[in-house]
Design a protein around this nucleic acid. Structure first.
Lengths: 154, 154
DNA sequence: TTTAATATTGAAAATAAATTTCAATTTGAA
DNA sequence: TTCAAATTGAAATTTATTTTCAATATTAAA
């Protein structure tokens, strides 16, 4: 069961991360590699606790502090990004080769509806290409108040 | 110096909030009204500390706990929303009658570029109207790695 | 391979935003 | 006006994240 969404193989990404670390004059440790590999297995979102527990479950002795520190490096390198927070907790996802998110979000009840709109997607892509930006994804979030919630406000 | 973006007068919004509070069987206090009025003066983003200091500066004795509690109610009512976090601190903005945000964001250096694209805006608006969603704004965020940052990765 | 300088680690302490507790006070329906 | 219930401020608590620090691991050079 492999993800067909990844255009870069994980091995390649791990190699690139090592180069990033080296280029910064830092040291490439087994902890950093192990954390990145575990993150690359995650299909959607993850938080620090989740990741830490997965590592523990595999018998790893990596500390939570190291998980936090490696996440910072991976964000800096552009491999992952924070996508949202819930109860003061950050959730992350792998940035590269991701499906774009297009959502309707009710700002009151937090209901989320997926948007499927090819015209919109094409236009965003066209516009993106005009800019000098690389490995790219996008989130379109339309905020509104859904019909259920309108009743309780007005 | 009044904002021409507001379609509803603040007086109207304050009245509506009172109704919302009543409808929930809660009590409408001077603290809640004072906090809402102060928030409605803010043109862009604010955090709790900022809001609390503004109130203090006016001689108000409202506690920080009440500011947090009222913000929760205002979010529930749909008047404000959390827009982002920085250093574990939440930033909010008034939801209604806002200008939409369209941004290019570099996931590495966090550089943000405003997008001005009428075609895109029109398409989003058209699509939004098809849905049964009311008082509406949207955020389009295109994430990428800017040309400066590409160098340090590969 | 050994050395040595320096970065990294884990564990514990510190930090700080947000939430909760609780006694005193305020609100609002009857 | 009364009074049950909600709200308040202040302080304590909670909890994710960051920092500290001594021990350890990494890496480039000898």
């Amino acid at each position: 069961m492999r993800s067909s969404l990844k255009t870069k193989e994980n091995i390649e990404l791990v190699k690139e991360f090592k180069e990033f670390i080296k280029k910064k004059g830092l040291k490439y440790t087994s902890e950093r590699e192990e954390i990145l590999k575990e993150i690359l297995k995650v299909k959607d979102h993850f938080d620090v606790e989740e990741l830490y527990m997965k590592l523990r479950g595999k018998g790893s002795k990596i500390s939570k502090a190291s998980v936090y520190r490696t996440i910072s490096l991976l964000i800096e390198a552009g491999y992952i990004q924070e996508v949202y927070r819930q109860n003061a907790r950050s959730y992350y996802e792998v940035t590269l080769d991701k499906i774009p998110h297009l959502h309707f979000i009710c700002i009151k009840c937090k209901k989320v509806e997926e948007i499927i709109e090819n015209e919109l997607i094409k236009l965003i892509q066209k516009h993106s290409k005009q800019k000098n930006y690389a490995p790219l994804t996008y989130h379109l979030e339309i905020f509104g108040i859904c019909s259920d919630c309108i009743k309780s406000i007005s």
